[in-house]
Design a protein around this nucleic acid. Structure first.
Lengths: 276, 276
DNA sequence: TGCAGAGTTTGAACACAATCGAACACCACT
DNA sequence: AGTGGTGTTCGATTGTGTTCAAACTCTGCA
């Protein structure tokens, strides 16, 4: 069995059983416990599981990821890089609007938890990820779109428009200088547009494959975007076109300059962590 | 079992029974009493239980800051039975309000999918369960309560009050003839009360342990409840008291007609697992 | 009520077991 | 040669069981 395949299955097991032992996994997958520990450490780093003494637990809402797990783990490093880089841009932010999609979910998963942060989002996945991590979340409400589990419709738009936010972090199905930020579903686009109405700064996070792509519904023209965070696979010409429109583009690169930014914050999760 | 897992379950037991002996816990969890004492000491240090001579007690109000993990596994079979029985009572329903809690989540999981069904709920878990199963769901919206992932606050109450439903299916932390349906968190209670405002019929689903229990916030007096679905562990006297108030009580029993589907010994695992 | 004595419960201390991560070596593949 | 994955060893950490003296509860008796 491939290593990636095993990790995926490990994650499935953890999500399924809520809590599982290292020894059990090692036996079931016929590998050493050390290997399982390494797998779990990785999954913890990516925000999927919580490590505990002797095993791991999860806070994932089971029903989401199961099918989407493979997709989520794919290109995990790039996604993590983008998410981390974007998180650095939002350090002081108090009120934040978060959009939808797996990229934003990754961002939510890797966002350092802060007491003073308030998030508003139409995504059930983002809301549950942050909710279980003790971030104060407001969910839009309204009709739940079936495949993506996002809130859509008039009341959702109404809800997100009520809040003033410092920063909005959104994903995109397409991102181009000509057509701006585009989404596939127009109802999602409506809600996101509503969320951007009263925000000071718009950060778009999108992997390279979205550059130059145009989806059906325009969310905002490119000029309104403040910063785009992407990875090195993004098309250079499109990057230039967007930059010419006055938008700042941040390309997340695998920790080149800094040798190791001090891993001393290693939090042990042997204790029962309870939401205050 | 993981040590963390055991501690959570110990806490759950203390919360459920109000008071419990060290010796009982040691026997049930197959560990030495010293280990239980250490667990309890830890839980006391964190403010979850109060240590007494020979055991521990707790205050009902505090109990529910425990993670969802602890409760999901407990009484899994009973909850499944109840859910199935309750689903039978809602066959013709077009518009339904669903409450919160693991019992209701089970109900949502086992509810046969119908095209013409519309559900409104303040629970993120229920919404995602049904959303992925192609049921049309409206989620309340508002502040997300951290531990349970439920929508609370004024806008959530506002949202659920807008809809007219045929039937409401709710769980309960406590259910008694004197105090009616009670919940632990008053903000949850507010939202549920709102959801019951414009419904024609209230079905309460609650396993036996809830009978006679009284939690802090009353959701509705018992007279307004139409039907209660529970299992055979429910206290007979309390059942009678509730029935005397004119409420119909349905006791879900493990498939009576079938003699016994062969105990192949393998069945133990499925009991521990959460229902898929 | 007060009190002695039996039985139970407790926590400290110790020993042992399980689990941990770091470090190193090996392998497969590029 | 380099990269990523794996298993093994080993010292440190964490969890568990046992023993034992002290503390506590309960009961019966005055």
């Amino acid at each position: 069995m491939l290593a990636v395949e095993r990790r995926l299955k490990v994650l499935e097991r953890v999500a399924e059983d809520q809590a599982i032992e290292v020894s059990t996994l090692a036996r079931d997958f016929q590998v050493s416990e050390m290997t399982i520990r390494r797998d779990l450490r990785r999954l913890e780093r990516d925000g999927f599981v919580r490590r505990t003494y002797g095993g791991a637990t999860t806070h994932l809402v089971r029903t989401f990821e199961v099918g989407a797990l493979a997709r989520t783990l794919h290109h995990a490093r790039e996604k993590r890089l983008i998410a981390k880089r974007a998180a650095e841009l939002t350090v002081g932010v108090r009120a934040m609007f978060l959009g939808i999609g797996t990229t934003v979910e990754n961002f939510a998963r890797l966002l350092p938890v802060r007491e003073d942060l308030m998030v508003i989002t139409p995504s059930l996945a983002v809301a549950s990820l942050l909710g279980t991590r003790n971030v104060r979340v407001i969910i839009a409400g309204g009709l739940v779109r079936q495949d993506e589990l996002t809130c859509v419709g008039a009341s959702a738009v109404e809800a997100v428009r009520r809040y003033n936010t410092d920063t909005a972090v959104i994903g995109a199905a397409g991102l181009s200088a000509r057509r701006g930020v585009t989404e596939l579903d127009d109802r999602d686009a409506d809600v996101i547009r509503g969320g951007l109405e009263r925000t000071e700064r718009i950060i778009v996070i999108a992997d390279g494959s979205k550059f130059g792509a145009v989806a059906m519904s325009t969310v905002v023209p490119i000029e309104q975007v403040s910063t785009v965070v992407t990875d090195s696979s993004a098309d250079t010409e499109e990057i230039e076109r967007i930059e010419r429109a006055g938008i700042k583009i941040v390309v997340a690169r695998p920790e080149t300059s800094v040798p190791r930014p001090a891993e001393n914050g290693e939090t042990r999760l042997t204790d029962i962590r309870t939401p205050a």
